[in-house]
Amino acid sequence: MIVVTGATGNIGRSLVGRLLEEGVPVRALTRDPARAGLPVRTEVVRADLTADTDLVPLLGGADALFLNLAAGGGESAQRLIDAAVEAKVPRLVLNSSLGVTDTPDDETNFISRSHAAVERAVRASGLEWTFLRGGNYATNALGWAPTVRRDGVVRDPHPGAQGAPIHEADLADAAAVALLDRAGTHVHQVHRLTGPEVLTNAQQVAAIAEAIGRPVRIEQIPEDEAAEAMAGPHLPLAAARELIGLFGRTVDAPVFPVTDTVARVTGHPARPFAQWARDHAADFS
């Protein structure tokens, strides 16, 4: 049985479906089971990972844990790691970040700093582990959906920013392989995962326009305006400003080069952004 945190998020939902296809029992942790909308074969369990509750019972009988930092933040992640050790869960697969480099640069921004800290805690736990370092999630483009639906506009500070956006289904497929790995091939491995091609934000917007069959224009806005829009309960304004600045530096060259890791781990090529745009056309329509 596999425990999945962040089960109703983009990666988690895809992962739950993938594991069920393999005939593996899944325990999905979510704050609101009534609204989870997960497949009927899923064991859906109420869990607020930010609350000061005993997490050990949630992991009882688990063969592996999928840990997504987005499900509760760093403190919750540490409590889950400790609970996994106490519950004798043998394996943990962490959804980490390409921003982690195992160098002092990891302390230079919020994303790499927070994920590096969790990686260190996982390494120290004694559990079998696999780190999935993804970057430039294609689902980040969903932040553009409200203005695309309303007036056909994407407002972005860096239309020329470059990245290799990765489909959440590819991250889920890689996670499933690591969670179900019986040969130990992926134990104590760090997988750097990207999409198959470098695209600018403007090119991503063009792909979305093609997928929905109507024009979408991109309008450049100031960095401060973008940071204020990005900031929220789990992302302080200062951290949002760090990230916007990082995106700006990719106008000259992508921070993360394209890798073939999705193909090597899953056995299939990484899905292109155009496919992601078609898969999510309803979100922009």
Score class of each variant (00 low, 15 high):
L55D: 12
L58W: 03
G60D: 13
G61K: 07
G61V: 12
D63A: 15
A64F: 13
L67K: 06
L67H: 12
A71Y: 00
G74Q: 02
S76N: 10
S76M: 04
L80F: 03
L80H: 07
I81L: 09
A83K: 12
A83W: 11
V85E: 09
V85H: 06
V85D: 09
E86Q: 03
E86V: 13
A87V: 07
L94S: 08
N95A: 13
V100D: 12
T101P: 01
T101H: 09
T101V: 09
T101K: 11
T103Q: 10
P104A: 03
D105Y: 01
D105C: 02
E107F: 03
E107V: 08
F110W: 13
I111V: 15
S112I: 01
R113W: 13
R113K: 12
R113T: 14
R113F: 07
H115E: 07
H115L: 09
A116F: 06
E119F: 01
R120E: 08
A121R: 15
V122R: 04
R123K: 09
A124E: 15
S125H: 11
E128Y: 13
T130H: 02
F131T: 00
R133C: 07
N136E: 02
Y137T: 00
A138Y: 10
G143M: 11
W144P: 01
W144F: 15
T147R: 11
R149S: 09
R149C: 03
R149W: 03
D151M: 04
D151A: 11
P157W: 04
H158G: 01
